[in-house]
Design a binder for these strands. Structure first.
Lengths: 216, 216
DNA sequence: TTTTTATCGATATAAATATATCGATAAAAT
DNA sequence: ATTTTATCGATATATTTATATCGATAAAAA
């Protein structure tokens, strides 16, 4: 088979991707102060980063700055959102309507972040039928079939550790392509499925370690 | 069981720190299967990592492996927990008893991760006095003073964005040394204060971007 | 006991990421 | 209109992180 070379879109590193939402935060604040242009230096200062790094990150969004002025804020916010695909909403299912799951269902702001949770699923019969933030909790048995029929591409897992792999398998069976995993387990999935882990313990470990070091 | 841990030779990178909890997860599972030794290869395979990287990460904990056998699982779990300071519990205050705050208060497992949340605080008078998972919700006004008197070193922020900086300031006034920040804002704090950000949007951005790329 | 083997851990190399340098540019000042 | 200035963005360098190589070692097999 012959390789077709497309114009190489500058690949974004994961670290850059994680900084982009922070830039949006700063830019929105500057915008609310009626500022129209932001330089890489302003942004870097606000976040305690290096301005060269900010410029490099922003270069990956394709937005072009102006000498002496910096970046047009509106355009830059738009460009970052586009890069993150936050200017579209992708339908998602959430499984596990416990306290964390409910908290996530309660967030209205995910729609600004490209995520549209349209249904929740549960094992526990007593929770089925509940409505959380206008989202109905359905029985887990329906997950695969509904995901397939509704062409849902994102799954959010907020079940306990010992149920997570099973839930992931059901999601994949239903054609889900990306999993946002809050359960403290490593999910085994086929190569074509994207898993983004959001375990609180990972971040907590960094905190407790650094604190202990600093108190030495 | 006696365990002598070598003094830590090298500073741990943040990326290593974030992998350590994942090793614990695998090791506990292997242990539950009555396995006593784990090689770097076994661990790496389970997590889809490189065995050399696992060995390097584990070297940073000071635990020594045995040729042909690998690492003694009990000793290794202990060593990793020690490195993360998860063998001690540090008292913490949480501010913001909304849905995410309540979810965090509900986690019983944080005590296995070095965190002991002993009180929660709120702005909203209607929430003050509530008891969530045996933890009382107190008025925010008491935060600084109580933190100082009780020598609390960790603060967890789960308030909305526009209140977070104010809460951080109060925490620092009360002598808190490390902040686990879930609010979507960059906190400005003195150098001696550690901030670990746990914003969901950062992780979500990686997911939505990768999914969009994969569907191209 | 001797040999074979799997795995460690030290050192070396490669890749990714961050930081520095500097000419080009357009806005603002002169 | 000309000069000065701040900032960009391309390229170069440094640093950090990940991966490869290989001798040393202790367990298991012969």
């Amino acid at each position: 088979m012959e390789m077709v070379l497309e114009k190489q879109v500058k690949a974004l590193s994961e670290r850059t991707l994680r900084r982009l939402p922070r830039y949006i935060e700063i830019l929105k604040r500057l915008k609310s102060e009626k500022i129209e242009f932001a330089s890489s230096n302003m942004i870097a200062d606000e976040l305690g980063l290096d301005s060269i790094q900010v410029r490099k990150d922003l270069a990956a969004t394709g937005v072009i700055g102006k000498p002496k002025l910096g970046f047009a804020i509106d355009e830059l916010i738009f460009g970052i959102k586009h890069t993150l695909n936050w200017d579209n909403q992708t339908d998602a299912f959430l499984v596990g309507a416990g306290s964390l799951g409910s908290a996530i269902l309660g967030y209205k702001t995910f729609s600004d972040h490209g995520l549209n949770i349209i249904a929740a699923f549960e094992n526990e019969p007593s929770k089925v039928g509940e409505i959380i933030n206008h989202i109905t909790v359905l029985p887990i048995e329906k997950l695969s079939d509904m995901a397939y029929r509704m062409k849902v591409h994102i799954g959010v897992i907020t079940v306990p550790a010992d149920e997570a792999q099973k839930v992931a398998d059901m999601m994949i069976e239903g054609g889900i392509k990306a999993i946002w995993n809050f359960a403290p387990v490593h999910l085994k999935v086929p190569d074509f499925v994207i898993v983004e882990n959001a375990q609180l313990s990972h971040s907590l470990g960094v905190l407790t370690h650094k604190l202990a070091e600093s108190l030495k």
